[in-house]
């Protein structure tokens, strides 16, 4: 009885010594189809593609807000107060007759600006603090005690306290949420730095007489970028929710400056039992935007650390 041959490689091996022509065997490993370009990316990282795609659409919506059939977001029409959704006002009107569709589309700007600005600012500042803390031993104890203290203040309350002391504006909302997010980034970067500085290649660099700033910039910094990017997307998502919460409870962007999904919902708060649509539309857009950013973050995390991908 001839042994069953299971792979093309084995088939070639058995063919050579005997000189007989081998039996034509079916290739049991299907050919690898290499996908290139956008389709390939979407195939390999479906969550990142879906999240990124949704986010791009929302960014486009925010940028093109004036051309999407919207009017003036702060135009008041007392004759058309509290209208339910109709052909004229797609999402209805609020207690002042303002068109909710217009306000929701423009509201995307505030959410996205706050989300991106907080993600970038807190990553940059947290990165700096984390690098110093992880590499300079005498500063580490002090910095980490301060960060422990900061982390003990629930982020939303910290932002509320800061907003109570400053003039309500988009910049101050960004600042307040950024301060609340910095400790988490610093801790993450410090953890990565502490594990990297034990690596042999860092020892080698030190042995070669490389200066500390150069080691930090050339050997440590590049390795912190991947986990930091993943963290930044999650910060972006949580900043968007925090901004909406702040605006909803009256400590964020006031409706007089710009419509934001949080303050549109705040306007609908008193009437929600009879006019639920005032709250419904901004709520759906806010949830979808946060979902898009979270999916992008999950996809990035899986791409950066494939071992974790199987777990979480």
């Amino acid at each position: 009885m001839t042994p069953e041959i299971t792979s093309p490689a084995l088939a070639r091996q058995t063919q050579a010594p005997s000189g007989r022509a081998a039996v034509e065997l079916p290739d049991i490993v299907p050919p690898v189809k290499v996908r290139h370009g956008l389709a390939g990316f979407a195939y390999r990282h479906p969550t990142m593609a879906v999240g990124g795609g949704m986010l791009l659409l929302l960014v486009a919506m925010a940028l093109l807000a004036p051309f999407l059939g919207t009017g003036d977001p702060s135009a008041i029409a007392p004759a058309k107060r509290n209208r339910p959704p109709s052909a004229e006002n797609w999402f209805g009107t609020d207690a002042y007759g303002k068109d909710i569709y217009t306000r929701v589309i423009y509201g995307a700007r505030i959410s996205l600006i706050v989300g991106f600005a907080v993600a970038i600012l807190s990553s940059a500042i947290g990165l700096g603090i984390g690098l110093v803390s992880g590499f300079i031993r005498w500063a580490d104890g002090l910095i980490m005690r301060v960060m422990d203290g900061l982390m003990s203040i629930p982020p939303i309350l910290l932002a509320v306290a800061l907003m109570a002391l400053t003039r309500a504006s988009v910049e101050n909302v960004v600042l307040a949420i950024t301060i609340a997010e910095i400790p988490r980034v610093s801790r993450l970067v410090r953890g990565v730095v502490l594990s990297l500085r034990e690596q042999p290649y860092v020892d080698a660099a030190i042995a070669c007489g490389t200066s500390t700033p150069r080691i930090i910039l050339r050997h440590i910094l590049p390795n912190t970028i991947a986990p930091l990017t993943v963290q930044a997307t999650y910060i972006c998502a949580s900043a968007m929710i925090t901004e909406a919460i702040l605006s909803f409870i009256g400590a964020g962007v006031p409706p007089t400056i710009a419509p934001s999904w949080g303050n549109i919902m705040a306007d609908g708060r008193t009437l929600w039992q009879v006019k639920p649509y005032i709250i419904f539309f901004p709520a759906v857009f806010l949830s979808l935007t946060v979902l898009a950013v979270n999916l992008l973050g999950d996809g990035l995390r899986d791409a950066v650390d494939p071992r974790m991908a199987k777990r979480l």
Binding site: R145, D148, G149, L150, S152, I153, L162, L165, T166, R167
Partner: peptide
């Protein structure tokens, strides 16, 4: 205790960290 002390110090200094004049804002 030191963590709580840092929390207290930080919450107290918010009045001084906040940009602008808190008294005028309030």
């Amino acid at each position: 205790i030191p963590v709580m002390a840092i929390v207290a110090l930080f919450v107290f200094s918010l009045l001084y960290i906040a940009p602008g004049d808190p008294a005028a804002v309030i």
